[in-house]
C-alpha cells in the first residue's frame, strides 16, 4: 500500500512540476525533442530517488536539481548542435533562480497575446509548437522557403514577447 501511495504522490508532484521543469530545461536546451528526452531521464532519476525526497521541501526545487544534472549529462554527450557554454548556462541558472517575474507574466498573458496574432502567425505557431511540424513541412505547405518560415517563427516570438511586455506595462499604469 505504501508503494502504491508513493506512486500516486509521485505522479501528482511530477505533474505539477513538469511545466516548470520543461520551461527551465528549454532555456538551456532549446530543442524541444532534446528537452523532452532530458525530462524523461529526469523522471526516471526522480522515481529512483523518490524515497529520499523530503516532503517538507518543495518538490519542484528538488526535481530541478535532477533536471540540471540530466541537462549537463545530455550536453556532455550531445555534439550535434551548437550549444551554449557551461559558464553561460551556469549564469542563466543563477539568474533564473533569483528572478522568476517574467516567467510568471508570460504564464498570465501569453494566451491573450496568442489571440492577438494574425491567422498566419497563429497557424505557424500551432504547427511548429503544438503539432510538432517540421519547418520543412511548414515551408512546403505554405509555399515558402525554409529560411522564410524560420524568420516568420522568430518574428512571431518577438511579437509575443512585445505583447506580454505591453500587457505588463498596462497593468502597472
Amino acid at each position: 500500500m505504501d508503494h502504491q501511495n508513493n506512486h500516486e504522490r509521485f505522479t501528482r508532484l511530477l505533474l505539477e512540476a513538469e511545466p516548470v521543469m520543461l520551461r527551465s530545461v528549454l532555456v538551456a536546451v532549446p530543442n524541444r525533442t532534446d528537452a523532452r528526452d532530458i525530462l524523461q531521464e529526469t523522471a526516471v532519476a526522480l522515481w529512483r530517488q523518490f524515497d529520499s525526497y523530503d516532503p517538507q521541501r518543495p518538490f519542484v526545487n528538488w526535481a530541478m536539481g535532477f533536471a540540471r544534472i540530466e541537462t549537463r549529462r545530455f550536453l556532455a554527450r550531445a555534439q550535434r548542435r551548437a550549444q551554449l557554454s557551461e559558464k553561460a548556462m551556469a549564469v542563466l541558472e543563477r539568474e533564473m533562480a533569483g528572478e522568476s517575474g517574467f516567467a510568471v507574466e508570460v504564464e498570465r498573458h501569453l494566451a491573450t497575446c496568442m489571440q492577438k496574432l494574425g491567422e498566419k502567425q497563429h497557424a505557424l505557431i500551432q504547427g511548429y509548437y503544438h503539432e510538432n511540424r517540421s519547418v520543412e513541412w511548414l515551408a512546403e505547405q505554405g509555399g515558402r522557403s525554409v529560411e522564410a518560415v524560420y524568420k516568420a517563427i522568430q518574428r512571431t516570438r518577438i511579437d509575443l514577447q512585445t505583447c506580454v511586455q505591453r500587457q505588463i506595462r498596462k497593468e502597472i499604469i
Binding site: 511545466p19 520543461l22 520551461r23 527551465s24 528549454l26 532555456v27 532549446p30 524541444r32 528537452a35 542563466l92 539568474e95 533564473m96 528572478e99 517574467f102 516567467a103 508570460v106 504564464e107 501569453l110 494566451a111 496568442m114 489571440q115 497563429h122 505557431i125 500551432q126 509548437y129 503544438h130 516570438r157 518577438i158 509575443l160 514577447q161 506580454v164
Partner: peptide
Amino acid sequence: YLKAAQIHGALADETLALDV
C-alpha cells in the same frame, strides 16, 4: 535571452494549445 527563452518554453507547453 531569458525572456525570449521563456516565451519559447511557454509555447512548448501543451496546455497552451488547449487554451487557444
